[in-house]
Design a protein around this nucleic acid. Sequence first.
DNA 1: CGAGGCCTTGACCGCGGTCAATGCCCGTGG
DNA 2: CCACGGGCATTGACCGCGGTCAAGGCCTCG
Lengths: 191, 191
Amino acid sequence: MNSLKPLFSFFQKLQPISTQARSDLIELCTVIEYDKNEEIQAIGATCKTIYFMVSGIGRIFYLKGGVEVTEYFAFPNDLIVRAESLFTKSPSNKAIQALEQSKVVAIPAAALFGLFDEHHDLERLFRLLIQNAFVETLRRLENIQFLTAEERYEKLLEEKPELIHKIPLKHVASFLGITQVSLSRIRGQKR
Amino acid sequence: MNSLKPLFSFFQKLQPISTQARSDLIELCTVIEYDKNEEIQAIGATCKTIYFMVSGIGRIFYLKGGVEVTEYFAFPNDLIVRAESLFTKSPSNKAIQALEQSKVVAIPAAALFGLFDEHHDLERLFRLLIQNAFVETLRRLENIQFLTAEERYEKLLEEKPELIHKIPLKHVASFLGITQVSLSRIRGQKR
DNA sequence: CGAGGCCTTGACCGCGGTCAATGCCCGTGG
DNA sequence: CCACGGGCATTGACCGCGGTCAAGGCCTCG
């Protein structure tokens, strides 16, 4: 499949893998296309699939007292995985959704983990991906814990300005850990 | 060394490793003893060592505007690692400290990563440890973002009651993301 | 016994939350 | 082509959680 190219060259930079590993991995990949706002994974299912964003934007969210809370946004090449479900084999209370018309690579987790026995380099690639996700989560934790809502918004503006323009503000707000209303005020007062 | 026993049987349950891998790993382990309040790693150094708690209690903290913020407590068998420094090879703004008289296993990261080439099972063990740490961090993020200070305290009481009795409340407070003063009020009002 | 660290308590305040009204944009059907 | 309805964003009024500052009690240790 041709849409796999950019993803695999991204992998290659992180951790080169043998051509055999590469083709075994490609075997497992399915490219799926989703419409705007379509659900990729529903709440309640145990996560058994690892996704990568090829094009478009995805998000992971859950319900907290009837209100949607966005936990993560995925841009092209980003891993999308409900880690707490996949790694603990318990049902996830989170859903994955496409925010735009999107292409996504789906890899069945069990089969991928099976490949790790033959292809040491694949396991390493995967370990590095997890490590990066871990580091990013640690950063998010620090920010949420010790910056004000306004500072978090500023930081997001610096680091991912495109995000604010492409994604409905209500999702950005819950990602920042605040309400739509507060975000609107913060944005209002610098104008 | 005999104090390695419980740690290695903990490893064994997570991911069995070959006897060769085991003895190579043991080669790398140094057991170090620290006094109460002694510093294990200072702020500013790039993290090059992976630690495991054998006995006692450790913590990772950093300074935020001159105030200590506790990010993590380590109990026996827990991994202690300043992931954002180790995995990005940049200097850490965090310190590791023993809160009691403690025994710690230190493993030089570069040498350990070197062993991964020969011992696939060791890399897997390590991957699983990272995965678990990742999941725990995700949980912490959710709690901090969407529970009130009081609810977080209740939850901590349920999940790790021993923590509150063994660790100075000022550290518990910053771990919960609140001030000493607020924690004191929360505790006060249920009595 | 005095000094310093830790915890508690009181007074006060501001950030961010809720509720509700209003404005704006866009898709749909008459 | 316009009218209507619904979703999203903004704005105002109000409030409560948790922060800061400061004083006071209680340990422990020299």
